[in-house]
Amino acid sequence: MELATKKLNAVSVILRASQSIQEVIRKDAARYELNPTEFAVLELLYQRGDQPIQVIGKKALISSSSITYVVDKLEQKKFVVRKACPEDRRVTYASLSSVGKTFMDRIFPPHEKKMEEIFGRLTEADMNKMIELLEKVEYYKN
């Protein structure tokens, strides 16, 4: 197979793998009456703690125009609370509420297991190499 064909094949494989993973996440989130974006924000807050609302988009891969809406929805569901930054009044943090923490304590372990199943055939070395290679593609700037 020539290099140009391999590159096109790589694009197809990456897109199919991404769609497959996104579908698993979509179904998993739907089981808990969440959309994938809401789930991504909850997962981020659960894994990394309080986050400035302004940076959630970059970390959870959400467009900046959607962040306020998603945080509003999660606040309405009592999963998230907003906290003012004591050092900078322009910054507001999103934080898991006690309800959100309890919810994530319950739903995250099965989700994590599902992710382990998806990548279960890969060794740690495979995972490291895959991440390294995909990061080379991810940071391509046009």
Rank of each mutant, 00 (worst) to 15 (best):
R31Y: 08
K59N: 10
V11W: 03
N128F: 04
S98H: 07
T102A: 15
L122W: 12
E117D: 14
T123F: 09
Y139A: 04
E112C: 09
R90C: 07
R48P: 04
E87C: 05
L122K: 09
G49F: 00
K83Y: 07
S18V: 07
S65W: 08
R121D: 04
E124L: 13
L74K: 00
K73F: 05
M115F: 08
D28V: 00
P110D: 11
I107W: 02
M104W: 01
V71L: 01
V70G: 06
L122N: 08
S95R: 10
Q47F: 08
S64C: 06
L34P: 09
L44C: 09
E33R: 14
F108D: 09
V81T: 02
V81P: 01
L42F: 07
V55C: 03
S65M: 13
K59Y: 08
V137F: 08
V70R: 09
T92F: 05
Q54V: 15
S95K: 14
A29T: 08
M1V: 12
M1G: 13
Q22F: 12
V71Q: 00
A94D: 05
R82T: 13
V81S: 02
E43Q: 10
M104K: 02
A60S: 02
G120H: 00
K7V: 12
Q51D: 09
L74H: 01
S66P: 04
K73Y: 05
S97R: 03
E23Y: 04
T5E: 14
F119Y: 04
I14L: 15
R82I: 11
I25G: 02
A17D: 10
L8T: 01
G57Y: 00
K58A: 15
K78H: 04
D28L: 03
T92M: 06
Q54S: 14
